[in-house]
Design a binder for these strands. Structure first.
Lengths: 178, 178
DNA sequence: GCATAAAGTTTAGAAACTATACTAATATTT
DNA sequence: AAATATTAGTATAGTTTCTAAACTTTATGC
């Protein structure tokens, strides 16, 4: 990897982590709780599970399971059994969690006048990265190989054969493939 | 902050963290050890201390102190007392640590054909971020307000009033200010 | 000189992470 | 149709890290 890029990536992640840690502690939360909440706030209906969280955060299932147990007790997350597949437990954020999250997001404000270029750059970096490491999904429907447009309001997911609303396009999907 | 940018930043940091965790465990190390090593490999002579590490990683001094104690026992880090200021303990990586680090870096290879633009974008983002949060330094001499060029091989640091070699310009400085 | 700040260490307790073993439901193979 | 393998999730024990608070030592400011 380009060496300077590596340094800045390192600094970016450190700073992000550091800010998150601060935000978490000022809200009386743990880092992981914030990470889980942030993920659940941007993932789609296929991806709101403990297993997906485990893959996204790179931690073991057991660890995630424990974290979720605590978060449920804190009133941040609710669990509900999936009727189609009885192994699966679907996760959802409570109102409290969403409120906490927006409070934290306000602390993370960054002034940057060149959003679009940077966003495109990072998206591209991630694409190469995930392909190189054969990492599972976590992208947006728009860029997915299974995405088939229908009209302005709907599109077809060729993987699940389901018709989805375009409003869900801005959510991360676990099954995403470039 | 731009919402999509936020999502990608989140994903980028998660993926980076996840990869680091994997790399660390495959080398028989802890995450923190890797983070410390990576920092020490890119920081300059003003910034190789426990305090700087604490600020960079956003952890308490005590935690860093403990981590360094372990790393010294593992033969990854050496400590030496600073003669000018007897409170300060200067840190250095051992050959072993550098070898481990390059082994890990090889695992982190990313294919990206647009380095320069992305690098510039991230640098800019960090600039805005650090200024907004009044975070301490951690930038390169080139972009520092205290940087005063002399000739091709040397420059003056107006903060410390020292003449420095340009070869150190690619190292992170704790005192950096835009 | 005296108070204050800065760099580090130490300790105790809380929290998270890993590894392993386990249950239950679904897919796949034979 | 039955056996096997895979996937989702939980539970437990042990290790490690992290924080917070109290403390030393050295340097700086008034």
């Amino acid at each position: 990897m380009n060496q300077e890029l590596n340094v800045w990536l390192e600094r970016l992640t450190s700073l992000y982590k550091s800010q998150m840690r601060q935000a978490a502690s000022s809200a009386g939360l743990q880092m992981v709780h914030l990470e889980v909440m942030q993920y659940l706030s941007v993932c789609n209906g296929y991806s709101n599970t403990a297993q997906a969280l485990s893959e996204y955060l790179g931690q073991t299932k057991g660890s995630i399971s424990q974290t979720l147990k605590v978060m449920e007790q804190l009133g941040l997350v609710t669990k509900s059994n999936c009727t189609r597949d009885k192994r699966i437990v679907r996760l959802a954020l409570t109102k409290l969690a969403r409120a906490q999250l927006t409070a934290v997001a306000e602390q993370l404000v960054v002034v940057d006048h060149n959003h679009e270029q940077l966003t495109a750059g990072i998206r591209n970096l991630l694409k190469g990265w995930q392909q190189h490491h054969e990492q599972p999904g976590f992208g947006l429907c728009q860029s997915c190989r299974y995405h088939q447009p229908m009209d302005e309001k709907q599109f077809l997911c060729q993987l699940t054969k389901e018709t989805l609303s375009t409003t869900g396009q801005l959510q991360l999907c676990r099954e995403h493939e470039f």
